[in-house]
């Protein structure tokens, strides 16, 4: 089935000035479409975590939003370096963030667990050094 609405967003590596813009845009779009506010909140939280992960940990990447009549899909892909142990990365509290990043309030090790918690379906594939792909589905 084709999507009602689709959009791509670029996310720059370490571009903290713009980080969050894609999630804000996704949130506004969903509000305009009239998606239920509690679902919008879950999507906003998950998108923000995904976007910040790309900005903090990767060499840059993309986010893709697709809205269908029965679901919203947020997919991300980055340009590396990939995650060595995905199971470990999914553990709450586990993080590879530097001290500098932690001082900014990131690197709590909650990003991936938050994404999984907020979405109805969550999948992650990662290979070193190619990069990481995440797909999150939110039912409407």
């Amino acid at each position: 089935m084709s999507s009602i609405y689709e959009m791509d967003y670029n996310v720059g590596s370490r571009d903290f000035a713009a980080a969050g813009d894609a999630s804000r845009s996704i949130k506004r779009t969903l509000q305009q479409i009239g998606v239920d506010t509690s679902v919008v909140r879950r999507i906003a939280i998950a998108s923000y975590e995904a976007e910040m992960n790309i900005a903090i940990h990767s060499k840059g990447g993309k986010m893709h939003l697709a809205v269908n009549s029965d679901k919203v899909v947020v997919a991300t892909e980055d340009f590396g370096p990939g995650i060595e142990n995905v199971d470990l990365a999914m553990t709450e509290g586990w993080s590879t963030a530097t001290d500098e990043i932690r001082e900014m309030g990131f690197g709590a090790g909650m990003g991936l667990p938050n994404m999984k918690k907020c979405s109805d379906e969550f999948s992650i594939e990662s290979s070193v050094p190619e990069g990481t792909r995440i797909k999150m589905i939110f039912k409407l």
Binding site: F16, A19, R24, K27, M104, F106
Partner: peptide, 12 residues
């Protein structure tokens, strides 16, 4: 926290 990303959190 005083950096720009707090605005993104507040908006979202």
């Amino acid at each position: 926290q005083t950096h720009m990303n707090i605005v993104a959190v507040a908006v979202l």
